[in-house]
Design a protein around this nucleic acid. Structure first.
Lengths: 213, 213
DNA sequence: GTCTATAGACTGATAGAC
DNA sequence: GTCTATCAGTCTATAGAC
């Protein structure tokens, strides 16, 4: 019943710095971020960052690892659920991603940029390659479907690409799009809410129509 | 009949530096690029960069402007062609973009990252907002179609998003995707070639099925 | 734990020789 | 035009006071 000692009644200094770093890194990227920016954003002194995290790079690794875990961990529960159908998984996944992206619209561009800038480090060193595809329930269901759908000529990787593209890309291009059209953030988010229902419909008609072409 | 003096028989020093800058900036982004990297890549000395371009930022602006013009100018001829139908325009546009992206896969992530990092400068200062939508032939055709399709409940902006998402996003996520699946660059490019035909089909069934849902 | 002050390395830009 | 040498400013990281 007793809580662990010091489980942040209100955020500790270390946690505040980490949150500040998350905001600054995610917005500006690793190279453009100065340790001074994080200090200023956190309200503490520059020296404290190195006191808690030893270096800018170590702090960055922590932030990036947490971002990747948000995307991977949160999804694992969905794709590994034996209770839901393939169709339901897709709907839940898209809805879940869009919710997350409305809250954290800068994450995809940040993650993809940093992976592009330093693929070796971010993919191998951060333990990002430990996921075992074979054991995932979604993959099992997918294979079962593929076995029955002998007519389906399209490469399944196209479908995966399409789900991710339709879900994530609008957020990546949001600054440009909103500027060009004069759309407000609220209007944009409302469009994204609409897409929770639209994308699964689109994906279904894609699968249904690609082989009868 | 006489050519302009010195229209690069083989590339001038200035042109070589610009090409080197294009490669380095596009790969690493503005902040992570050091003037010394460009010098090394070009084979010339650091001082020459400032001799020709005065500053790192001025050189960057030139590169970025050229990238934006590639994307805008090359597209203008297509969307303004009165000879082609809306359907044909879409097919040509997608095919044209995929060709360009296979040759320059780093451009979208680069452009979108830099716009995200500095929206005010890159959208207004670089004269990126001079396009007059009203005069474009594609927009005219679009409005004509919309007038006849009174059943079409879906916001047209979704369709534009979808075309761009399905075309561009695979290139942005290519480093991650290829690493996760072990796919070669050749195999990836072949998939993208397939998408030249697939995306227009998908867009058509989207338009056809979204309102009968 | 938190601060000020500063060391030590690096960066963009320029002066000046050739 | 192209180079070497170097300046002035900025950056990360640390030493040391409190």
């Amino acid at each position: 019943m007793k809580k662990q000692p010091e489980i942040e009644k209100n955020p500790s200094t270390e946690e505040k710095i980490k949150e500040a770093a998350r905001r600054v890194f995610t917005k500006k990227g690793y190279a453009a971020t100065r340790t001074r920016d994080i200090a200023e954003e956190s309200g503490f002194n520059l020296a404290l960052i190195n006191y808690y995290f030893r270096s800018k790079e170590k702090l960055f690794d922590i932030i990036m690892l947490e971002h990747l875990q948000i995307f991977i961990h949160s999804v694992m529960g969905i794709v590994n659920d034996p209770e839901t159908t393939l169709q339901e998984k897709m709907e839940i996944l898209i809805s879940h991603y869009i919710d997350m992206l409305i809250k954290n619209p800068d994450i995809p561009l940040f993650v993809l940029s940093e992976i592009n800038a330093n693929p070796v480090k971010l993919i191998s060193k951060l333990g990002f390659n430990k996921v075992q595809h074979g054991n995932i329930y979604l993959v099992k269901q997918w294979k079962e479907l593929a076995a029955t759908q002998k007519q389906l000529l399209i490469n399944p990787i196209h479908i995966i690409m399409n789900v991710l593209s339709l879900t994530i890309f609008p957020f990546i291009s949001s600054p440009l799009l909103r500027n060009r059209t004069g759309m407000s953030l609220e209007a944009f988010n409302k469009l994204m809410e609409e897409r929770k229902k639209l994308i699964p419909v689109w994906i279904n008609v894609m699968i249904g129509n690609s082989n009868t072409n």
